[in-house]
Write a protein that binds this DNA or RNA. Structure first.
Lengths: 201, 201, 201, 201
DNA sequence: CGATAAACGAGACGGTACGTCGCGTCTTCTG
DNA sequence: CAGAAGACGCGACGTACCGTCTCGTTTATCG
């Protein structure tokens, strides 16, 4: 009598290397055609994969795209990647440098293409929040918490609102105004909106 | 000898009353099904119109929808609709009351459904900016200019950034976070972000 | 006490010269594009007329086309146009020469385009029979009756069948086999089918 | 070392059983509504198929309909289905019995609906000739050749013209005169036209 | 001579079918 | 069984044409 093994799956195992190839192909096509122009078939062809291979991994075009932008490098940044530099302003400068701005622009535009589906697909909405929104939000909350601890920010301020300010402005800029994110545009947000609203200096 | 008339157009003129009927039908269908669920045929049927009548006026589903939300009453608000109450805070309260919040939520979600198309259709993007973004933006700039004139706001502040804050946060809230706009949520934006960032009080 | 006048109609009278212009335009467009390619709008444009002017005269595209081919010259041939030459064969030669073969080909092809509508429009079917089929048929019956009178044809033969032979073969040739009517093709029909079937010589 | 296989095609193969289902649905709809009343969507719905599945097989409504009537049983009759009965007259009687007259009427009317498209679509015209006209024509030529061999028909006669007589008269009867094909009508054609024209008896 | 009524050119309108395209699933063969 | 390839059901899109209608304009007769 043996312990029930975790039901080792039969048959040919998933080829895990396909995931990265597919996600990269997705990003390529997205960059070339935008979310609406992108076709699952285009991605499959570019990745030399069958459509079923894609749908075995992600349940819809939207999920695939979420996974693709979640795989972008700076999605994995955590608070520990931004060293405590002693002040909120310099922390934000450090964050700014750790962030790949062209990618941010693309990411926001693609996210813009997705939001139509968010309204009707709760599972997708959760995925977006968990994989795209929360990581950045958590990190920003961390920076703000540091600033509160230092005494730079009044602890009564609404930190959630403050933490949402940067992504909301960036998203709006990329998606509605259709203007790219630049070092200057980010600096302006920090100096003109975030720091004043936080009551720093 | 007479002045040259502006070349009176031949043939049966457009029935301008159809425009309103069609736009209303569009808003009805949008409210019931959302942007993705809406069908041009649904709208045509509801408006007792042929599809050609719609496509004669607007070149695509997206353009039709932009026209529909642009026709919503509070899209036409101008600075003169918000009386000068003597302070930025009270002006913003007046604005808040002049705005239909449930409509705002719907409007933002519909706009969310559209942004995917903005990336590939420059003409549509222009329409959105001209008909949806600029009017509100202009009004908010007017309120801020009043405040500068009163001495409430330092004239060196970036008024564009400040004017963008509210719509950006509202759009992000409705479309990405999927939370409705309420009186409280708007008050919070004003008190926690806009007024502090503007340096008022 | 006055004689009842034929109630002279009020308003602007029909411009009868438009009829001919429209029918000619119809034939032009038909010759260029065939029945299916022809559009009522094309005809109206070519005739510098409004569509209503066409529909005031003929109740549908099909009726217009019937009128157009009925207006072709050799539609008005009657028995008196074919002199009694003394034998059926020579009578048929005379008929052949009185007939415009290129027009016949076009006429048959256009008639081919119409037959789809004949199934669902009895009024149209009547028009075709009265204006296109019966005149030719009557003439051919006349030629055959002459031949019977001369003793060339046994009076017990089915003259209807014989009279139908030529148009049926011609129609089939033009419409299904897509081959033009020529002097030779018509001669072949007469010598190989009609005269033998009639028992002449 | 092996012989090069005929490069077995990749991917899911066409489901050949769908063809028959679709063609049958086409015939059903045609019988109910006629060619003009038939809609590709109706056929797709009836066959529980998507429109794309139809258009993958046939490039237009007209091509679909040609395929459907070509699939009718008596389209596949060949000379060997009509036994040599010893005389042309009795051979034709045998042929008449091997033919489904109600179907013939329907077939001709449907073909009538198609001919409008033949003028503008050469590929379709070829299909009609190859799949609908030639098979019958070939068989009739075979019967006539038998009769020549027997000495019933003078070998100098134009057998093509004779072979065309029956289908042309039948087509004209169904499509222009709008009268159904009956046993009597066919007998009349044979006795009054075909046999006399062929010089039999 | 002005009023009236219908024809006319132009083109918008309601309706309906077409043929295309994309999504997500299913079905074959190959490794 | 996974994977490549691509057919399949479904359903929306935007286009085209038909036959009707509604403008402003023209051309007759009537009062």
């Amino acid at each position: 009598m043996t312990t029930a093994l975790p039901s080792l799956p039969l048959g040919r195992p998933r080829d895990l290397t396909r995931d990265a190839v597919i996600l990269e192909a997705t990003l390529d096509v997205l960059a070339e055609t935008g979310y609406e122009g992108m076709t699952v078939e285009m991605v499959a062809t570019r990745a030399r994969a069958g459509k079923a291979t894609l749908y075995r991994r992600w349940p819809s075009k939207a999920h695939l795209v979420v996974a693709a932008i979640a795989s972008l490098s700076d999605s994995n940044l955590t608070l520990s990647d931004v060293p405590d530099t002693g002040s909120l302003r310099t922390d934000l400068v450090a964050l700014k440098h750790a962030t790949d701005n062209p990618n941010i622009t693309l990411k926001m535009q693609i996210l813009g293409g997705l939001v139509a589906s968010l309204q009707s697909d709760q599972q997708l909405a959760d995925r977006v929040k968990d994989d795209l929104i929360r990581p950045r939000s958590t990190m920003m909350r961390g920076l703000l918490a540091r600033a509160v601890a230092r005494g730079e920010i009044d602890p009564d301020r609404d930190l959630d609102a403050l933490a949402t300010l940067m992504p909301a402005m960036t998203f709006y800029r990329c998606v509605v105004l259709n203007e790219p994110v630049t070092v200057e545009s980010q600096e302006c947000l920090v100096e003109e909106l975030l720091l004043p609203a936080a009551g720093v200096r």
